[in-house]
């Protein structure tokens, strides 16, 4: 209950922020943070709760974004159509990647997800006729959001988009929270702890893992659609392995299996490079060092540290 009130207060503050801040730069950084929160919270379902290491969140992000771009190009889809399409497309690929997880675990599964991530990236860069190759594809602004012919909201400026991204992030956090705290979330933790025992008490491990992969990928797909409309275009380099590794770092540094942890991780890892602008070229080095330090000294991430403080 207290967590819920804090969440509402933070969201309300974020919703009022544009009234106080005129500058587009801060809003831009926050939009990027919101998108990464969706990615990280999604990854937390499969990695934090279900215990299946995945380095493919960037690929699902890309699948969502390119689905939006391609369906706009070929069928003239607008945001109301690209959003569900991107979620479904990424979710289907999530199901596909979930299948090896039924037989593999640990490092072997992680390597499989890296292979999947690499294949998706190569398709985005090399299948030029379909994806536009390195040049990518254009995507329109979200524009007018209508429901049954009524215009609800117009998304033209960064500020407009800020509200849309905020709403999507809130919805994504809500979905993830709900899943993690429902019966399936409890079953994920059982699977993570001991698969054989989970089965022995009647947990359908196959379904549990596949649902985790699909939900995680679906959220990444939504993030991808948002990015595509926000940048008004897609290009492959946003969806390379570095993105996946960054999202993994966000989840680990923030604290897995907590929802709050990945949110903190996404804020930290998105804000850090903005603060350390001058050190831009060392970004990945800094990420790597932070990851090593966190995994070695803070296995519970920031959230684990806070919990320990409270208990002490």
């Amino acid at each position: 209950m207290r967590a819920f009130l804090i969440a509402v207060a933070v969201l309300a503050a974020l919703a009022l922020l544009p009234l106080a801040v005129a500058g587009g730069y801060l809003l831009h950084v926050l939009v990027v943070i919101f998108i990464f929160v969706i990615l990280a919270v999604g990854l937390d379902l499969v990695m934090g709760y279900c215990g299946q290491y995945s380095f493919a969140q960037g690929a699902f992000y890309g699948i969502g974004a390119y689905t939006a771009a391609i369906l706009h190009r070929d069928l003239g889809f607008g945001f109301w159509q690209t959003l569900p399409s991107g979620i479904v497309a990424a979710g289907l690929f999530g199901l596909l990647l979930g299948i090896p997880s039924l037989r593999l675990s640990g490092h072997f599964l992680a390597i499989t997800t890296i292979a999947f991530q690499t294949i998706v990236y190569l398709l985005l860069t090399q299948w030029t006729s379909f994806t536009g190759g390195q040049y990518g594809l254009p995507v329109p602004k979200v524009g007018a959001l209508t429901l049954f012919g009524w215009e609800l909201f117009r998304v033209e400026t960064v500020r407009d988009f800020y509200f849309l991204a905020l709403g999507c992030m809130a919805a994504a956090i809500g979905v993830a929270w709900r899943l993690a705290h429902s019966r399936i979330g409890r079953q994920w933790q059982a699977i993570q702890d001991d698969e054989l025992l989970a089965r022995a008490i009647g947990v359908d491990v196959t379904r549990g893992k596949l649902v985790a992969f699909v939900a995680s990928a679906g959220l990444a797909g939504a993030a991808g659609v948002l990015l595509a409309h926000y940048l008004q275009g897609v290009s492959p380099d946003d969806f390379a392995i570095w993105t996946s590794a960054t999202v993994v770092a966000m989840v680990l540094a923030g604290g897995r299996a907590s929802i709050v942890g990945p949110i903190l991780g996404a804020v930290l890892f998105t804000a850090m490079p903005e603060v350390l602008r001058s050190a831009q070229s060392y970004k990945l080095v800094i990420y790597g060092v932070v990851m090593i330090l966190v995994v070695s000294f803070l296995p519970g991430g920031i959230v684990g540290l806070l919990r320990r403080e409270r208990r002490a």
């Binding site: 019966r183 409890r186 079953q187 059982a190 008490i201 009647g202 947990v203 359908d204």
Partner: peptide, 9 residues
């Protein structure tokens, strides 16, 4: 937790 599969809604 052993009860959960039984309560599966």
């Amino acid at each position: 937790l052993a009860l959960h599969p039984k309560l599966d809604g």
